[in-house]
């Protein structure tokens, strides 16, 4: 199925979860914050958050700034 990940279309497995997506991207859950269709998903819910066709996923992290 297709999801929109950080503004770009991405093909992922049908039953994938947010946790599996992060794993595939080699991102540590502690280092990111995630939104699913503009709702913030709590870190302890990544494993139980199943993604669906067309979902908008945003993954954000800390960078240098003033």
């Amino acid at each position: 199925m297709k999801i929109i990940l950080n503004g770009k279309e991405k093909e992922v497995a049908d039953s994938t979860t947010l946790q599996l997506l992060l794993q595939a991207m080699q991102l540590h859950p502690e280092m990111v914050a995630c939104e699913l269709n503009l709702n913030i998903i709590k870190r302890n819910k990544y494993g139980s958050t199943q993604l669906g066709e067309g979902d908008c996923v945003e993954i954000l992290q800390m960078i240098g700034g003033g």
């Binding site: 950080n6 991207m25 990111v32 954000l60 992290q61 800390m62 700034g65 003033g66």
Partner: peptide, 13 residues
């Protein structure tokens, strides 16, 4: 610090 989208091509953050 600032908060930005993860860029998959840039691992520096």
């Amino acid at each position: 610090v600032a908060i930005r989208r993860v860029d998959l091509k840039d691992r520096s953050p």
